[in-house]
Amino acid sequence: MRRKPRIAVWKFASCDGCQLSLLDLEDHLLEIADAVDIAYFLEASRATKPGPYDISLVEGSITTPHDRRRILQIRRQSRFLVTIGACATAGGIQALRNFRKVQEFVRLVYAHPEYIDTLEHSHPVSDFVPVDFELRGCPVNKYQVLELVSALLAGRRPRVPRYSLCQECKRRGLACVMVTRNEPCLGPIVQAGCGALCPAYHRPCFGCFGPAEGAQVAALAQELRRRGRSGPEVVRLLRTFNAWAPEFREESVRHEGA
């Protein structure tokens, strides 16, 4: 019999929600547990096995020198390394501190030694090691996690859309919240994946899945300004869970103080 693939789940700076999505696959959890060898998944088990691992799922952003060393070790032990969620993929909500001015940081004297261990920025995993696949979302869509694990087990590339949320929204036949309600929707520039949840709940998309492939971020920002949104409002819209994704970061800087 073929050896079961060994899976490890790792946590860095994060809320645990993406690894929880694995446990939220209630109908499939036992099948997954049967098909793979869960070698390291602290949130679920106190039994841990040393590497190497076939698949490492990484949640969370890198914010300390210790975590930077840890991700290098994990990379060395992992055949496939996949980031799950906005923190690991783009630095997460905690990357909002990356926008603080350097001088402000210099003025800060940390009252406790452990603070000194903090890196200046909250980094995506890909700043330090090569990443084989990135799953977007804050949180990830649990069915994309299932697709990812199934694809890796079958030795194929996961099928995850890179197009914009608008396409999902249109396919669901939802009324456009920007056109009908003049709400500041990020749908045109945000990657699909949630199923256009917010428009379905009469709410504009606020960007959990980060920039879509080929996103025209500047054009949308300009349109939002034309519709009466202020510079600070546009900055806040672009700076949430994927604030440090280059496309959002660069455009948000352009609207600062405007």
């Binding site: 939220d24 917010c198 379905a200 709940y201 009469h202 709410r203 606020f206």
Partner: peptide, 15 residues
């Protein structure tokens, strides 16, 4: 809307 980080809670009620 979803189990992790639901999207429907608004100040004053729901969307």
């Amino acid at each position: 809307g979803r189990e992790v980080h639901p999207i429907n809670v608004a100040v004053g009620g729901f969307y």
